[in-house]
């Protein structure tokens, strides 16, 4: 993770006050950094059904081009960081839906919560959220058979239902609890839940790993218990999570896990590793 010096950034502060949805896919480091304030101000956005410019709804201050900071009232500003490929984007506050959708690279950091349908179709890069996430985080877009295809998502708080739906590759690490249907229809990849994993996790999963460190509410009957053991790869992930600032203690690396395999209604080669909570 890169250190950020806000003295060398482009800062965009939203001053929009109404609740009209704003679509601002242009707010990526690749589109903004390296441009003059005038050029940035002329980038197109959609406010409701009207075409407007960034300068109409954001105050722009530019002190460098190291990274992009977006702040202010962002609740209705959707698609920030969409298809982001490179650079660093820092969100101060809670953005609108579709944040980081189909991002393929770079680093996206959110100081706040994220709503439903964020980080869908992600294929690379790192997304770090200091708060909680809504439903369908890092899931497949409607109509798509594949969800997250790569990269790392770190949510310090809780996540809503169907997090990582149809995930194909990558890592989702959740510091808190994961709501129902976490990792549903997973094809591969890894989801780690430091808190509790809610019921119906892994429904329809083919392959992939869901690692529950804080217990599981319920396991679907289409999963079979195989054994209790100490997976040798867990310490690697724990080390990585600790580097990402998530709560990991030594009892996890030295403790045992119950391995459930399923979902037998699908290919059945997925797994839920349930840490035996003392």
């Amino acid at each position: 993770m890169m250190a950020m010096n806000e003295n060398r950034s482009v800062y965009l502060e939203s001053f929009i006050e109404d609740t009209l949805p704003v679509e601002a896919p242009c707010l990526t480091p690749g589109s903004v950094l390296g441009r003059s304030e005038k050029e940035i101000a002329s980038l197109p956005v959609l406010v409701g059904n009207r075409k407007q410019k960034i300068g109409d709804i954001f105050r722009i201050s530019r002190s460098g081009d190291d990274f992009l900071v977006v702040g202010g009232n962002l609740r209705h500003v959707k698609r920030i960081g969409q298809k982001m490929e490179t650079g660093i984007l820092l969100i101060k506050g809670t953005p609108g839906m579709h944040l980081g959708e189909e991002m393929s690279g770079g680093e996206l950091r959110v100081e706040g919560d994220i709503p439903d349908w964020c980080l869908c179709g992600m294929s690379g890069g790192l997304a770090h959220v200091s708060g909680s996430a809504g439903n369908m985080t890092a899931s497949a877009l409607p109509g798509e058979s594949r969800g997250m295809k790569g990269g790392v998502v770190v949510i310090a708080g809780n996540t809503g239902s169907r997090t990582g739906d149809a995930m194909r590759r990558g890592l989702i690490a959740i510091g808190g609890n994961a709501a129902e249907f976490g990792g549903s229809r997973m094809v591969a990849g890894t989801i780690i839940v430091c808190g509790r994993l809610a019921r119906r996790a892994g429904g329809g999963m083919k392959r992939g790993s869901i690692i529950a460190l804080g217990g599981v509410d319920d396991i679907l009957p289409s999963f079979a218990k195989t054994c209790r053991y100490r997976p040798s790869f867990i310490p690697l992930y724990m080390k990585y999570l600790a580097e990402q600032g998530l709560p990991v203690d030594d009892s996890i690396t030295s403790g045992e896990f119950v391995r459930w395999v399923g979902d037998c209604t699908s290919l059945g080669k997925g797994e839920i590793l349930e840490h035996e909570v003392a």
Partner: peptide, 20 residues
């Protein structure tokens, strides 16, 4: 089972003791 972490790929090979 393949696991990719931090740009590195690992293989978990099932063995009688557990996994290699």
């Amino acid at each position: 089972v393949s696991k990719m972490l931090d740009g590195k790929r690992y293989w978990r090979v099932p063995v009688m003791e557990g996994e290699f």
